[in-house]
Design a protein around this nucleic acid. Structure first.
Length: 469
RNA sequence: GGCCCCUUCGUCUAGUGGUCCAGGACAUCAGGUUCUCAUCCUGAAGAUCGCGGGUUCGAAUCCCGCAGGGGUCACCA
């Protein structure tokens, strides 16, 4: 009878969430969802000094945007102080913890002494002789029982260490708060967490934790240690200091949550096939901790861009329309939905993220001033004389005037125009495209004209005609 | 410094003794799709699998050593 899988993400509220933190949350969430288990969010706010106000809500919002939702209330360690205190007294009672009233200066002296003797700094070798009875408000230190440990990590595999890494450490601080080292173990047990999924910086502390689990008489969960997401230099973990972005900035830029989730999941994990694009449902089905990479992975924004574009292209027009709602250029304010949908259909395949929408579509909503420089800078068109340009524009206008502006008819008219003028598409179509869009790049010509419609198209050709001098 | 973890194209990775003088994807470059940008397709370039020893008929894959990188040794998490 195996237990229900329960995982958690346990950030400290010290700032915004970046992709590194989100990936840890995502992996824990995937493990829980895959097993039909529960994913919990626990805010580890035991260090008042480092706390950044607003960050708790920010973390919740970030996860919510990505669909990484906790299955129970959001827990906060500051609400659970009695529990830690109770457990602290238990350890005092069983002789596995002692009050440590030594001052920072005295502790420094111990460190210096060890360094001078060229020995590792082990507080268990400097235990006070007659510690006072512990009560809340005094620092409480764990009394370790050093020994060898061998354990299995779901990602790292078989791990083992000697007794030299098991030491006494602080459980309760003088401000009445527990340390991370203590609180997370008490909480994981209390919340019946089955898989502790966290990043690499805790790996070296596992033997100390193992010793504490024993002292507490608590079952040891499955450990899964995740490698870091690396920053630009490829050697250090991504951090806020070297420009890691707040994940909510990706929302602002018009990245899809599913794309970011896909990207993060495949940063350090793959299913062993050549599949790159996964839906979130596929990730839940296929994710496997044993296939998580042991080494760090560098964050590559270009790959994210590509992946987001791939997800954007897979969206139905309805879905894309909903997603694009907040990204239209302000000129599109008065445009009707049908028109906007047609525009969206034309740019869907060239969108990498939704914040590109304005620059890609602005000309569909407003007549931009005719700019003859677009012609004089064009490598084909600049070879033509003014009178040739004028003549071509006039011929184009006259031919299009007779069109019903269905894409099919436009395409016929355009082809007829090619024959009549004897021009290459590279010349004729470029000229019409520039005249009607005032943009260096735009979707295919007949489709663009069909969406723009007769009035706008003809008006713009005339406008360009009057600028060609 | 002690201990622990890591090391395949620029990047993300496949690969668990032979079919790997290493496969895919992003990025780059070239060509094709009646014009641009993009999509899509095709192709090119790109990794002596960190280095050195061994084991083996045969090693990216197993063993040993070394180097480099990272983490950790807080009343931070």
């Amino acid at each position: 009878m195996s237990k229900v899988t329960r995982t958690r993400f346990a950030p400290s509220p010290t700032g915004f969430l970046h992709v590194g933190g989100v990936r840890t949350a995502l992996f824990a969430w995937l493990v829980a969802k895959q097993a039909n288990g529960k994913f919990l969010l626990r805010i580890e706010d035991t260090d008042k000094a480092r706390e950044v106000k607003g960050s708790e809500q920010h973390i919740i919002d970030s996860l919510k945007w990505l669909g990484i939702n906790p299955d129970e209330e959001v827990y906060k360690q500051s609400d659970r102080l009695e529990l830690y205190e109770k457990k602290a007294y238990e350890l005092v009672g069983s002789g596995r913890a002692y009050a440590d009233n030594r001052t920072p200066a005295e502790l420094d002296e111990i460190r210096n002494d060890a360094v001078a003797k060229k020995r590792p700094i082990l507080f268990r070798e400097y235990r006070p002789d007659n510690p006072p009875a512990w009560k809340k408000g005094m620092p409480l230190r764990f009394k370790s029982e050093p020994k060898d440990y061998a354990w299995t990590d779901a990602v790292m595999g078989q791990l083992n260490t000697g007794p030299e890494v098991v030491d006494d450490f602080i459980l309760m601080k003088s401000d009445g708060f527990p340390t991370y080292n203590f609180a997370h173990i008490v909480d994981d047990d209390d919340m019946e967490i089955t898989h502790v999924i966290r990043s690499q910086e805790f790996l070296a502390s596992v033997p100390k934790y193992l010793n504490l689990y024993e002292a507490l008489g608590v079952q040891v969960p499955i450990f899964a240690t995740l490698p870091y997401v690396m920053g630009d230099d490829g050697h250090k973990k991504l951090s806020k200091r070297d420009g890691a972005k707040d994940v909510l900035e990706y929302r602002t830029d018009g990245y899809l949550p599913d794309a970011l989730v896909n990207f993060l999941a495949t940063l350090g994990w793959n299913d062993g096939t050549e599949q790159e694009i996964f839906t979130t449902a596929e990730l839940i089905a296929k994710f496997d901790l044993s296939r998580v990479q042991k080494s760090g992975a560098k964050f590559d924004p270009r790959r994210l861009e590509w992946m987001n574009g791939a997800h954007l292209r897979k969206l139905s027009l309805d879905e894309l329309y909903k997603r694009a709602e907040d990204f239209w250029p302000k000129e599109a304010e008065k445009a009707d939905e049908t028109y906007k949908r047609r525009v969206l259909g034309l740019v869907q395949e060239r969108l990498k993220y939704l914040a590109e929408l304005p620059e890609l579509t602005k000309f569909f909503f407003v007549d931009l001033p005719a700019d003859p420089n677009l012609i004089s800078n064009h490598k084909q068109l600049k070879k033509l004389s003014t009178s040739e340009l004028k003549k071509l524009l006039e011929q184009s206008r006259d031919a299009l005037k007779d069109s019903d502006f269905s894409q099919r008819d436009l395409s016929d008219k355009l082809n007829g125009l090619l024959e009549k003028t004897g021009q290459k598409p590279a010349v004729l179509f470029s000229l019409i495209r520039i005249a009607t869009t005032q943009a260096p790049a735009s979707p295919e010509l007949s489709a663009t004209l069909a969406v723009l419609g007769r009035d706008r198209s003809l008006y713009r050709i005339d406008a360009m005609l009057s600028e060609v001098k």
